[in-house]
Design a protein around this nucleic acid. Structure first.
Length: 336
DNA sequence: TTGTGTTTTATTGCCTCC
DNA sequence: GGAGGCAATAAAACACAA
């Protein structure tokens, strides 16, 4: 017994046991489908007011208003009495009896109006339903607990739906961000490359002009034939051009490009053919190489464009438009 | 019929309010 | 300190598949 709480009826030897038969069928035709209450109140027969489907003390009912009127009205039965079934019920100690459908409906309607129970309402409901006030209170208490559980389930569903929606939005935004990042990388690399090409072009142009001036100062007969002059000019231009391009690529301050190239295990910085023959030295497939490169500086998930998908028909303008040995397609793979 | 899971009724202990 | 609410729990009643 907690908090000095007093539970009415039930265990008192003076209480009367009242048996309310299960009225689920509400036909009143079943053997026990009638209202019973004990006429005796000695301790030998009603120590726990058993048999009542709605365990209650008759004294409680009568004690509230001194009348059994509402009790009988609520259940629509005027059949009062003892029969053999009563003894059977009294000999089932500790049995719980469920409330009838009518009682539950009545309580439900009352709960819908107000889920808290004031003392007056509790007493009135108890009277109307032929229950102990304590039983009504317990029913409301349990009903509130059920309502709270349902409410929590609903809240959980709402939160879950909200979470799923937010998660989908987040995933979508993340994919878009990755895509845009990859696009930015590709575009900045292309920009870098075009800038280098432009610089190379102007350098070669300067060298070519210098050489022409020098040759023009000397008599042709002293140096060589016209064909030889042309060859020398081409070779010098070519060597300077190649060395300039290689220098630009591997000494560039651009961390992305240089890191990417240098992180490629297929290339050795000391190798003279480093930049242009990487493809030919590779033991790996093109896909594996692409993966190695893209792993080194591209965002995860970025699909590296395949060489065969790239259009080489219109490469960036070469800095040296005579005999520049542009054979390595990988060199152009950054342009679209 | 029986085993098992769910629902309902009731108890207990703790807490808050007046 | 008593009344009442709540959470946790017990236990009976009930539903249902095998």
């Amino acid at each position: 017994m907690a908090g000095g709480r007093v539970y009415g009826g039930g265990n008192g030897s003076s209480s009367l046991g009242v048996l309310l038969q299960n009225q689920r069928g509400s036909s009143g035709s079943e053997p026990l489908d009638s209202l019973f209450f004990s006429g005796s109140c000695n301790s030998s027969t009603s120590s726990s007011f058993l048999g009542s489907r709605s365990m209650m003390s008759f004294e409680d009912v009568r004690g509230e208003n001194g009348s059994k009127k509402s009790f009988f009205r609520s259940f629509g039965s005027d059949e009062i009495g003892l029969d053999d079934d009563l003894d059977e019920y009294f000999h089932q100690p500790g049995k719980k009896r469920r409330l009838t459908v009518d009682q539950v409906q009545f309580l439900e309607k009352s709960f819908e109006v107000e889920n808290k129970l004031e003392p007056e309402r509790k007493v009135q409901l108890a009277k109307d339903l032929g229950l102990q006030p304590r039983q009504v209170a317990i029913w409301f208490q349990n009903r509130r607990a059920r309502w709270k559980t349902k409410q929590m389930e609903k809240d959980y569903d709402v939160l879950q739906a909200s979470y799923n929606s937010l998660k989908a939005d987040y995933e979508s935004l993340r994919k878009e961000t990755d895509k845009l990042k990859a696009e930015v990388l590709v575009l900045s690399d292309e920009l870098l490359k075009r800038e280098r090409d432009r610089e190379n072009s102007s350098e070669l142009s300067d060298n070519s002009n210098k050489l022409s001036e020098e040759l023009a100062e000397k008599p042709i007969a002293e140096s060589a034939s016209e064909g030889e002059v042309s060859k020398v000019s081409t070779v010098v231009c070519l060597q300077e051009d190649i060395s300039s391009v290689k220098s630009d690529i591997f000494d560039s301050d651009s961390p992305r490009l240089t890191d990417g190239v240098r992180s490629n295990p297929l290339m050795e910085p000391g190798d003279s053919s480093y930049a242009f023959e990487a493809d030919h030295q590779s033991d790996l497939s093109q896909d594996e190489e692409d993966n190695l490169i893209s792993r080194s500086f591209l965002p995860s998930g970025y699909i590296f464009p395949k060489l065969e998908d790239v259009d080489y028909s219109d490469p960036p303008e070469s800095s040296c438009n005579f005999e520049y040995p542009v054979e390595d397609h990988a060199f152009w793979s950054w342009s679209y």
